[in-house]
Write a protein that binds this DNA or RNA. Structure first.
Lengths: 219, 219, 219, 219
DNA sequence: TATGAATGAGGATTCATTCAT
DNA sequence: TATGAATGAATCCTCATTCAT
């Protein structure tokens, strides 16, 4: 390449190029998942991919930022493709909440490395990286907003109790992401069981009902 | 001596040495909180601390791992000192669960830099790196076990419903830690309100009661 | 074939090949003039020329040295074609000296990019690099010798004073080249005015006459 | 170092540091003079200086820009120190012009590498390097202005004819600099003879007198 | 004849660490 | 106990060139 392609996008890519990019992205995912983001240098990724030179990565990706961007984008896209249909097939309210949690964990079960890699990336450059991190923040925010939307919907139809949707949304995401982290160090974890427990947990947390005879809004 | 102290530990440290170590740890905390873990090099820490040489840090700490270990340990210790009395003063069961969550967030409110720094450290290099990660895993595990203990206790006295204590414990921790992350990028966050919402959330999640007429253990 | 044409030279080139070479040389000239020699990589030249691959440049030119050689040669040839007739049309002596200077600057006025590019090239890598510099030295020397010849001719017919022709020649060239440099950073420069001033300057410098009553040959 | 010194400057530098900086600057000068600016990489400079690591250069200089800045500054300072007293000791007008030219070439005779190096640097990054080149442009401009001042002074006292001082100044500088370039490839050049010729040349060029009976101000 | 892919050396810079004082 | 100097590996990235098609 070297004479950098215009960013016009995917359409102009050769078959070979697309394949190589995919291969490199895949190698990056696995490398990040294995050794962590900070240690996932071009050298290690190239080695993992069986490439002869780190230059090849630079040849296909304008910068490391573009590469990790693609890593994130690819996993997010795959995740959305897998989960959104399931979630939206469920009835709004409690069922949809369960579907959200369970489909997230089901996706994890089949894409452990991807999940780990994205978790690594998102937490590795949280703030402090000028423009780059800012690119992922909205992505995370959008995910939270989507979830919060489902929750508000459940409140609107009277299946979910009155809580702050953003707090609940962030908590649910944190709970799911934590599973991802744990999964990284503990393959063999029974994700199905976790999914059930977690769904129950948030079903209780969000549904109408006690505890306490009245509300417990004091303190 | 230089770089390797006798293994006897704390006892053998002179007053000056302890003071310097504390100063460096403090500078490391602030630096990490400000610029992120990845950018918290010895150079930047030394600059922040007003030290004339990065060599001084190496002189007092055998490796960077030891330094960040101390950072984590110091914050964890401070946290425990602050929170454990409050938690154990509360009545077992639901009250203690609330106390756990609220005291955690109260500690955060007063120690934002520390919390941010630890959050940075725990999500940076660790995981997947052979020996180093192992040092934090048990620490994290111990914290979870402590929390799970409180939960089992609540189940035993019949105030909390039947759930998997480890799942609930990890979820609660993840929820709290997520607040820490968010706090890093969003000072001005109303921690008191979050604490209340979160306590309500897990009160509903863990207490006896619906949803569903019976249990919902299907699927 | 690929990268090494028969040494027969120009004759063996097809029409297409000549056209491509010319196109590439032209793109190289413009690129060098725009971004400077150091930044004029194959990638940037290819992009400027609308070529799809840097490989095409390597296909037509055995090395970067050959390409920049052609850049210089082309501009020098164009310059000679433009200037020599004008110079030789002028009467030997003072008039021819003026013609030399003025035609040089007139050429510059109409070929700013070319002039800039050559100035860039001549002052970049060349000097001190074993074989490559040697290619431009004789070219420069030949130009100086041509000019020195005009000067000697003027001395022979008694219009120009006794000075060292090589010193005068190099000084004149340096003065002209300096205008080229300045032009690069300062388009809008009034070349006609410069030409007049410079012609007057060297007319005084080289013509018979004072200063001093006699010669001033003392140290 | 690494914890970068404040730019407070020279005062805060250790003896050793100053010595190393000087050594590196000297090595840079010689390396640039030998292989040209573009090829004067840290690796080559370090090798030339007998350093074990390119890191040492980065340790003492914040960037390559700072290093070459020091190279230029050092030579300019030495040059000024050498030449200005001589120039200003000469009587204004023709004598001072001769002094300017002759002292410049006398300095060159004793500082060939320095002269070559600076010439390399100044022409290597002419424009196109955003802020860096801009730092040298004023330096060059200041030198030209100083010279133009001497020329105007000579015109004011009636020793020098009416010409455009900036054109004359740039021409004189170009003539001198050209000697520097030539010197690079041709040690053994008789600088004293050049100095005499050049002084005569510009004495004729600038002094009151013919050629032509009247002025020749027509196009 | 042209293309896109691949190569590997080389670019400056940052880093944790060592060591003589 | 502290300092500043030095080290060399590692970072991402750019380059001209080669080669199969």
């Amino acid at each position: 390449m070297q004479a950098k392609h215009g960013p016009g996008g995917t359409a102009s890519r050769t078959f070979t190029e697309s394949a190589r990019r995919a291969q490199i992205v895949q190698a990056a995912i696995e490398t990040i998942a294995e050794v962590g983001y900070a240690r996932a240098s071009y050298a290690r990724i190239a080695e993992h991919a069986g490439l002869s030179s780190t230059g090849l990565i630079s040849y296909h990706f304008a910068s490391k930022g573009e590469l990790v961007g693609e890593v994130v984008a690819e996993v997010v896209a795959a995740g959305q493709a897998f989960m959104v249909p399931v979630i939206e097939a469920a009835a709004p309210g409690r069922a949809r909440l369960r579907a959200y949690i369970e489909s997230n964990l089901a996706f994890m079960a089949g894409h452990r490395a991807q999940i780990t890699a994205v978790a690594e990336v998102l937490n590795a450059l949280p703030r402090h990286s000028e423009g780059q991190a800012a690119a992922y923040a909205p992505l995370h925010a959008r995910g939270l907003e989507q979830l919060a939307g489902y929750l508000r919907e459940g409140q609107a139809i009277g299946q979910l109790r009155r809580f702050a949707p953003d707090v609940m949304a962030q908590t649910i995401r944190a709970a799911i992401d934590a599973v991802g982290y744990r999964l990284a160090g503990e393959p063999g974890l029974d994700l199905a069981a976790w999914a059930r427990e977690l769904a129950d947990l948030f079903d209780h947390a969000a549904s109408i009902g006690p505890p306490g005879s009245g509300r417990r809004e004091t303190a």
